[in-house]
């Protein structure tokens, strides 16, 4: 007798838990063959609000962890993903990739996470500077995490796009609210399950599924979100930029082929950082000589 396969209900990820959307709605995206991919939460503006509250709450302790410890945790994500490779490959195939493409995408995602894990305790040394000033000050600039980052996962990929934007944003101590690809959302929620089992504290990453039209403007306008990153948004771009202006959010749209090995780098990290310059008064050593 043929067994009827259970269609998984993919729930959203907020504050380290997997609730259903508060709106109680769902949608069922189809793949190119017309098969249903799963039942997914059609999240609402209130879910965005709850996710931002969870992200803000998690920000304090995540940003205060040592950079080295954050590196360990990010690396742990890669380890867990490696262990569940097969599940991601089969989900990608279900969403329309060939087996070879799916394997390549998952392996690249793992490698990219390891890449950013390595940067955690190094970006600040590379980016920071001691600045020459013509007064009796020791003047230096270092980078600090910003706060809550709104992330729109790239639409054309299910896994590699979201990894490429999300991991550099959180590896410096930011927390994130991510809206998954509308038509290819499966890997986003399975990735949430990976995060949940890999020492990433609850609330550091929050993942919602639903429509961009409904979720993106609210997230972009939210006063408690400090930066907003995405791929180019076409007709939505101007509206989103205007919504983001109230609290002077940093807003970046990256045009990139995420499956290229070149689509990673230090500047994906530094875009979500604030530069702090410190003027530290010192004795005027310029004119003096050693007393010895």
């Amino acid at each position: 007798m043929d067994r009827v396969e259970i269609l998984k209900t993919y729930k959203i990820y907020i504050g380290g838990a997997f609730p259903r959307t508060e709106s109680g709605r769902h949608y069922t995206p189809l793949n190119s063959k017309g098969d249903p991919l799963g039942n997914l939460c059609l999240s609402s503006r209130k879910d965005v609000r709850n996710a931002v509250v969870a992200a803000r709450k998690a920000f304090g302790s995540w940003s205060e962890r040592s950079a080295f410890n954050r590196g360990q945790i990010i690396y742990r994500i890669a380890e867990m993903l490696e262990g569940r490779k097969e599940q991601f490959i089969s989900e990608l195939q279900k969403q329309g990739s060939s087996k070879a493409e799916a394997e390549k995408e998952v392996i690249l995602a793992i490698d990219r996470i390891v890449y950013y894990a390595g940067w955690c305790d190094k970006y600040n040394q590379v980016l920071s500077a001691v600045n020459p000033v013509s007064s009796a000050h020791f003047n230096f600039s270092t980078y600090e995490s910003m706060g809550v980052i709104g992330v729109l996962a790239p639409q054309a990929t299910s896994l590699i796009g979201l990894v490429s934007l999300l991991i550099p944003a959180i590896c410096s101590g930011n927390t994130a609210v991510l809206i998954a690809s509308e038509k290819l959302p499966l890997c986003a929620i399975t990735f949430a399950e990976v995060l949940n089992s890999s020492d990433v504290p609850g609330g550091v990453v929050n993942i919602l599924t639903g429509t961009l039209d409904e979720l993106a403007p609210g997230l972009a306008a939210h006063m408690d979100v400090n930066a907003f990153i995405s791929e180019p948004l076409g007709s939505m771009e101007i509206g989103i930029a205007q919504a983001a202006v109230d609290n002077l959010k940093r807003k970046f749209s990256y045009e990139a082929d995420w499956s290229s090995e070149k689509s990673q780098g230090l500047y994906y990290i530094s875009d979500c950082l604030e530069l702090k310059t410190t003027w530290h008064p010192i004795e005027n050593i310029g004119g003096s000589t050693s007393s010895y």
Binding site: A221, H222, D224
Partner: peptide, 9 residues
């Protein structure tokens, strides 16, 4: 304002 607020303000 129609916009979710932040305790920063």
């Amino acid at each position: 304002t129609g916009v979710y607020q932040s305790s920063d303000y």
